[in-house]
Design a protein around this nucleic acid. Structure first.
Lengths: 259, 259
DNA sequence: CGATTCCTTGAGGCATCTCAAGGCAAGTGG
DNA sequence: CCACTTGCCTTGAGATGCCTCAAGGAATCG
């Protein structure tokens, strides 16, 4: 239990609370409870009562054009963002000036969590297509957590999942074979598409070969050649960014088992 | 560098390791407020009053022999752990059965955060030398957070820092040149040694060439050759696991600036 | 229609991997 | 105390998968 006094003194000192600050055009008032992605997104696993609590934050929306940055490495990090429509890409700057892609985010996924450690973003995020995000004032969310253990657990899980996701990425990068890395990437996309009600076997990639390559630790030429090789093997059919996996289950089996 | 851990290593004779059996019984009652690492460890940045609150958890200690596991991938994750003495290694199992090292932890660093997402550890942790950890019941820590916003912020920062740390590791892996990756690794160790009051230029590595290689995405032979090359260049002197960097500052400069 | 961006494919080079041999230090057992 | 074993490291030689460089095709756009 906490006292009212603690609640008052502790809250505003950490971060100034500016709730629906108009970063761009605030299409204010989007609520999780009526969002089609509530199952997989921020409030995933929350009970109806707690969901209403999160609704009270009434996330402002922000639209992004293709290529537009959401935020840059080093910038002030007061918000985290949930992808509502579209696809984003996260990246970090390497010491030699190259950009390393650390992730791709689709609807229902969260970006900006790298900023909660010290209030500065450690990565940059750009839109790969016309997109829309919910801007979530992190301090406000934390305030909710103070009144509600479920919301507190939510934040912890959110950050914890991000840690696991990054570990999975490292496991992917640990694969010594370029073709296998691409397979793993495509299977990952496939699963996320399925979880969102889209086809697991046929989808449209939103990123360039170079961006895939950066994410997977290879050059764009090697990505291209790996696609061609997988097509020759009859694993998939690829036409530019459109991919059809012939047998997702078989591929997953083969990928998991064989070297 | 002489650490406390080395004094301990000499004493006990090697004994057969039985996997799941806890070797130590909790030496209860270790408190953060009297720990030499309180500045860099879990309670870093906490004010004295809040520190006493964390003290109330009175962490049980657990001793680990060299090579002994702290926990395994897939196991129930109710605790997180702070390294009190010694060095740990975290790793994940790749789909081909190989073990990929994801991190090394020294005194004052936290392991087990990958388990807070869904209550199962996503990685395994082993002791690289005789070590000692504080076992922190995560749910109990979260309970404290409910009474105290600073502790809540502490947990968030803890998880957030882990996210940033993993991103830094990915940035390291993104470096295309093996020698540069090794340099980056040594500079990282150097910084952590300095932060703990040890020499930044001379230290003893606790892991094998193979473990370094796994962490850095190269074979043990390439690690060895890279060490030799750096020695030939006059950057450092290496004798087995003992490393002396001739000019840390110059190396950091060169590493940051040049390709 | 030219400019641009993205992708594919080829040829050659090279950094790293693989395989192999040997050295050193520490532990083990006679 | 000394052979023997074991684990770890170093170095060499050859193989290779990926990178670099280069050219050209296809879609998109102003």
């Amino acid at each position: 239990m906490r006292t009212v006094a603690q609640q008052i003194t502790a809250a505003p000192r950490a971060m100034p609370m500016i709730r629906s600050e108009p970063v761009s055009q605030p299409t204010s008032g989007v609520r999780c409870s009526s969002c089609r992605f509530k199952g997989v997104c921020l409030p995933g696993g929350l009970e109806p009562g707690d969901l209403l609590l999160v609704d009270s934050l009434a996330f402002a929306q922000r639209r992004l054009h293709e290529g537009e940055p959401l935020f840059h490495e080093g910038e002030d990090a007061r918000f985290i963002y949930a992808v509502h429509i579209g696809t984003l890409k996260s990246s970090i700057l390497l010491r030699d000036g190259r950009q390393q892609v650390t992730g791709f985010q689709v609807a229902g996924e969260i970006v900006g969590l790298d900023g909660v450690a010290n209030g500065r973003h450690a990565s940059s995020v750009h839109a790969l297509e016309a997109s829309q995000v919910c801007t979530i004032h992190f301090a406000a969310l934390c305030d909710l957590a103070r009144c509600n253990a479920h919301v507190q657990r939510l934040i912890t899980r959110l950050l914890g999942r991000e840690i696991v996701r990054e570990q999975e990425h490292m496991a992917l990068l640990g694969d010594s074979d370029a073709r296998h890395r691409l397979e793993g990437f495509l299977l990952n996309i496939s699963r996320r598409m399925r979880e969102r009600g889209y086809s697991a076997s046929e989808f449209h990639l939103r990123m360039t070969r170079a961006e895939m390559g950066s994410y997977l630790g290879m050059t764009l030429e090697t990505v291209s050649r790996s696609f061609s090789a997988l097509q020759r093997q009859g694993v998939l059919e690829v036409d530019r960014r459109h991919v059809r996996i012939n047998d997702v289950h078989a591929l997953a089996q083969a990928h998991g088992a064989i070297n």
